[in-house]
Amino acid sequence: MYAQMVNTDANRVRDISEMSEEERAFQERIDRGEKIEPTDWMPEGYRKTLIRQIGQHAHSEIVGQLPEGNWITRAPTLERKVILLAKVQDEAGHGLYLYCAAETLGVSRDELIELLHAGKMKYSSIFNYPTLTWADIGAVGWLVDGAAIMNQVPLQRTSFGPYSRAMVRICKEESFHQRQGFDIMMKMAGGTPEQHRMAQDALNRFWYPSLMMFGPSDKESVHSAQSMSWKIKINTNDELRQKFVDQTVPQAEYLGLTVPDDQLKWNQEKNGYDFSEPDWSEFFEVLKGNGPCNKERLDARIKAWEDGAWVRDGLMAHADKSTVARTAAE
C-alpha cells in the first residue's frame, strides 16, 4: 500500500475460457506460481498496471524521505542522527531498486519522475502529513513502516520477477526501520510526562493516516480482483488493515499508549479487533492534493530535480567527452 488504488484498465476479470491462447498460457504460468520475466510475453494491461504500481511504490520511497529528512539535523543525539541518516539512505536505495524494476517494463526512470512532477502519478497519501515533533519520527518508523511491511512481505511472492526480487531486498532492510521507530517510542513513552505526552500525541495523529495507507475497502473492486488474479496484489486492503491493527494494538498497550479509537474492542469470534474506519473523505482530499503537505512535498521534489540538473548534465557531458577522447586515442 505504498501503492494505493492502482488502476488496471479492467472492466471485469475475464474467465480463462475467454482468453486468447497467449493470455491463457500466461495466466496458467502465474497460477502455477512461475515468475514472469521482462522479456516474456505479457498482456498489455499487466505491463501497464505494474508500471503504475511499481512507479507509485518507488515515488513513495523517494517522497517518504522528506518527512524524516526534516529531523536529521534535529535528532536528539548523535546516535539517533546516524540511525535516521541510515534509514533515509535506505529509502533512497529502495526507490532506486523499484525504479529499476519498473524500467524493465519499458519505461524510463526520468519519464516516471516527470509524470510524478506533472501530477500524473501519485505517491502514498501518508507522506502528505507533517512530522511535527521527534516522537513523530518514532511513530513513522513504528506505524508507517509497520504498515508498509504488512504489504511488502506478501509482495515478495508477486508474479513479476524484478518486482519480487526488489521486494525481497527491501523487506530485509525494512525490519530495521520499524524496530528503530519502536525503540524511539519506547524511550519517549517511558520518559518524562512531557515526552510521554508527545508519544501519545504522535500516535493520535498517525493512527488513522496509517490505516488509510491500505486504501479503502476493495472487496468490490474490479481492479483489485484483476491485480490479485495476476498476483501483483496478494491480499485485500481490509485483510491487511485488520492484520495491522491486530499486530499494533498490543504494541501500543506495551508502550502504555492509548489507540485513539473509542470503538476499539477485541472480538473473540473473529479473533481480531473491531475498530473504526478512518475518515475516507479526508483520504480522498489528500489524494486530490489537498492534504497538509502535498504542495510542500511535490515542490521539494521538483526543486531537487531542477537544482540537480546541471550535475546530471555535467557528469554526462564529461563521460561523453572521455569516450570521444578514448576512441580518438585508439
Partner: peptide
Amino acid sequence: GSLHAPDAEM
C-alpha cells in the same frame, strides 16, 4: 540489480 550512472567509475 541495475542502476543509472554517467560512466563506469560513477
